[in-house]
Amino acid sequence: MTLLMTDGVPAGLDHRVLRPLNAYVRGHATGDPAHFRDAFLPSAHIEGIRGGVFVSWPLEDYSTLFTGSPAPDEKDRVRRLDSVEVHGTVGAATMTLIHGPDTFTDVFLLVHVDGAWKIANKVYHRHAQAAG
């Protein structure tokens, strides 16, 4: 499983920076939180607004949101890498996730540590759905 690449991925990018992003996508696609341990630093936090309230989950708390099984609508979900920037040992990436009626924008801070790229932190925005 790989990400759908877009024009936001610069030519000549060291594609090793995409490894944690692909692991993150595998975690969502399979529902297996073990993939998040491959993607994130152990100290990572996942932050955003949920139900109108700011949340800041440590990685282990975030991982409990996943059941170990794919979502029933997994075949219809879309995940797109919108942009990646690398500056030496740090980087940033933006991804769009369409999960049923919900669309999320995820922004990742990446760091190259101990010979590998990892997600240091993630923030997300859940787009409001239009009234139907």
Rank of each mutant, 00 (worst) to 15 (best):
102 D>Q: 08
42 P>H: 02
62 Y>P: 10
64 T>N: 07
49 I>T: 08
73 D>V: 02
112 H>A: 11
47 E>P: 07
59 L>Y: 04
109 L>P: 00
129 Q>I: 12
17 V>N: 07
72 P>N: 07
131 A>M: 12
40 F>A: 11
57 W>P: 15
8 G>C: 05
95 M>H: 05
28 H>E: 11
110 L>C: 09
7 D>F: 09
63 S>Y: 01
23 A>K: 08
132 G>I: 02
23 A>T: 05
97 L>A: 10
32 D>T: 02
94 T>E: 15
20 P>R: 07
74 E>C: 07
88 G>L: 04
120 A>P: 06
120 A>H: 03
64 T>H: 03
104 F>P: 01
22 N>P: 00
38 D>Q: 14
25 V>C: 08
84 V>L: 08
49 I>E: 08
44 A>M: 00
106 D>E: 12
121 N>F: 04
38 D>Y: 08
132 G>Y: 06
78 V>T: 04
28 H>F: 12
22 N>Y: 05
123 V>E: 09
15 H>N: 11
91 G>K: 06
124 Y>Q: 07
10 P>E: 01
87 H>P: 08
29 A>S: 12
60 E>Y: 00
36 F>K: 06
84 V>I: 11
114 D>R: 15
31 G>N: 10
102 D>F: 12
48 G>S: 01
60 E>Q: 12
51 G>M: 04
67 T>P: 00
61 D>L: 15
114 D>K: 13
126 R>A: 14
112 H>G: 09
73 D>E: 10
105 T>L: 12
92 A>C: 11
65 L>A: 00
113 V>M: 14
25 V>D: 10
74 E>I: 03
100 G>W: 10
31 G>W: 09
31 G>K: 15
14 D>G: 02
74 E>W: 11
73 D>G: 06
76 D>M: 13
118 K>N: 12
113 V>W: 03
13 L>S: 00
126 R>Y: 11
86 V>G: 12
26 R>V: 00
121 N>I: 01
58 P>N: 09
28 H>P: 05
98 I>G: 07
67 T>N: 04
5 M>Y: 05
41 L>R: 06
32 D>C: 08
130 A>S: 06
132 G>Q: 13
71 A>M: 05
22 N>K: 11
18 L>V: 03
29 A>D: 12
71 A>V: 03
1 M>C: 08
82 D>E: 15
54 F>N: 01
38 D>R: 13
112 H>K: 14
77 R>G: 01
85 E>C: 08
54 F>P: 04
15 H>Q: 14
25 V>A: 15
59 L>D: 00
27 G>N: 13
72 P>L: 12
59 L>Q: 05
84 V>Q: 12
122 K>T: 05
87 H>M: 14
47 E>K: 09
129 Q>W: 05
102 D>W: 14
26 R>N: 08
86 V>C: 05
13 L>W: 01
87 H>T: 13
15 H>K: 13
54 F>W: 01
29 A>L: 13
83 S>K: 02
61 D>C: 08
55 V>T: 03
87 H>I: 09
